[in-house]
Structure formats: C-alpha cells, structure tokens
C-alpha cells in the first residue's frame, strides 16, 4: 500500500455571517486508494486528536447517487472527473500536490459551516413545480402507458440529475438552469407529467429567480461539471417550455 502526501488548503468558516479563511494542512501518509472524502476523514481524525476542530463537509451515500456531498476541489465543483465529490480518488492527484477545497459559491446557497452550504433553494424550486399528480396505491402495470423509446430515453437522461447543486456552483452567473431544465425535461416529456406541464416551467423559473440564482449565459460550465452527465439540451427545452407556457397564459389558453 503506497501512501501520498498533500498540501491542503481547506475553507474554514464558522457560520454564514463569519468571514471565513483557508487553513493550510500538510496531509502526510494518505493511502493512495483513499477516496477524497476518506482522505478528509483521516485529516479530520488527526485534527480531532490534536484537539483542533475538524473541517465540516457533507456526505451521505458516498456512492455518487444521493447528491449530498458538495465541494469545490481546485476550482471544479464536485472535483475532477465525472461523478460527485465522493467519486474522486487520491490516486488521481500527484504526490505533494496542493489541493484547494472551497464551498459552493452562490448567493442562493448560503454557507452553513466550512464546506457545507444550505441547498434548500433547490428543494423550494422542486416544491414549486417539480412534481406530478398521481394516484397512490398499487403499482400500475409497467406497460399500461405506452411511451416511445426515444422519449423514455431522453426523460431518463434528464432524470439522472441528483440535485447536487454543482451546476449553479460552476456557472459564472450561479444560474440553476441545468437543474430546472433537467426537471422540466424529465417530467414534461412523460405522459404522467402533462397535467402540470404549462405551469411547471413558469413556476419553477419564477422560484429560481426569487431564490436569487443568476441567468443563463450559455457558458456550458454546468454541463462540464454535472456528475450525472445531464446535457445542456435540457436548458434548450426549458427555454422552449417556458415561453410556450407564458404565451399560453398571455392568450388565455386553458390551464
């Protein structure tokens, strides 16, 4: 088992109102097969043993599925390579490398502590339209509603979004358009999502603006970092869906 050494710059910030600063840590003898979060665990254990306060970060499944972990590693939200921050491995870095870890920077994601930000803004966007109305009860027959394969595929690609917030963190404008676009595309393509379709884009975009996210400038930074590989096609679809919804309202169409 080979070990590696790193020069870490980790963001420390007590609360949203605190100033915050980087702390420098020489992380020595880190096993090269560690994941990035395991490396942070080792560093935090050592800090605790030294009687110092560990660096807070969020994580849950550590399998790249849940979208809980969120941090910016060397300027890249969710770190280098595809997948969330938990899917980054220390062997991808070079021995002795300086690694800077910062929280997501977006006004709509206020810092809770250190590397942890509050991403409830995404929940509020979902609440405003990222749902369908459906009967509860027994699972329906899987083939009861026929959906053409290309439509199902496109909806599934958009449904891959784990809502981690990396898109808004990467966007120079802190825009959440990839996230909102993924939800609007996913639900808008499927028959089950037609009921709320016209309202959905309008309502979610309005909430996105109210939460203080920026506007899309077609930089495509979101697409470059998305751990779920969601494509900017969903933004194109959102742009269409939104104007369609507003025009329907403007001409007094039903629903």
């Amino acid at each position: 088992m080979s070990t590696m050494n790193f020069h870490l710059r980790l963001w420390k910030q007590k609360s949203a109102s605190d100033q915050g600063k980087f702390i420098e840590i020489h992380a020595t003898e880190i096993p090269s097969e560690c994941s990035f979060l395991e490396m942070l665990d080792i560093v935090n254990n050592r800090l605790t043993k030294e009687g110092k306060e560990p660096v807070s970060f969020a994580s849950d499944c550590r399998e790249g599925i849940c979208g809980t972990c969120h941090m910016v590693i060397n300027g890249v939200p969710q770190g280098p390579g595809r997948g969330a921050a938990c899917q980054v491995y220390m062997r991808k870095f070079t021995n002795g490398q300086t690694i800077t870890v910062e929280p997501f920077r977006a006004g709509a994601f206020p810092i809770v502590k250190d590397l942890v930000v509050n991403r409830s803004a995404y929940d509020r966007i979902i609440r405003s339209g990222g749902f369908i109305t459906e009967h509860t009860g027994g699972a329906p027959d899987a083939s009861a509603i026929l959906i053409p394969k290309p439509v199902a595929d496109a909806a599934m690609d958009a449904a891959a979004c784990i809502g981690c917030g990396a898109c808004a963190a990467a966007c120079p404008n802190s825009s959440a358009m990839l996230f909102v676009g993924a939800k609007v595309t996913h639900l808008g393509l499927l028959p089950q999502g037609q009921g709320e379709r016209k309202k959905r884009a309008r309502s979610m975009v309005r909430t996105m603006q109210e939460e203080g996210f920026g506007n899309c400038s077609n930089y495509y930074a979101c697409e470059a970092v998305c751990p779920a590989g969601v494509k900017a096609d969903v933004i194109s679809m959102l742009n269409r869906e939104y104007v369609r919804g507003e025009l329907s309202v403007a001409v007094g169409a039903i629903d």
Binding site: N74, V76, R105, G107, A108, N173, S174, G212, N215, A221
Partner: peptide, 16 residues
C-alpha cells in the same frame, strides 16, 4: 448575475 455570485472562488477554473 453579479449579485448571484457575491463571493468569488479562490481557484478560478474556466470549465467549458
């Protein structure tokens, strides 16, 4: 857009 990102990143990455 300026208001949406009150604090800049320490490490800049152009990202696509």
């Amino acid at each position: 857009n300026k208001r949406a990102r009150p604090q800049k990143y320490a490490v800049k990455n152009e990202l696509g």
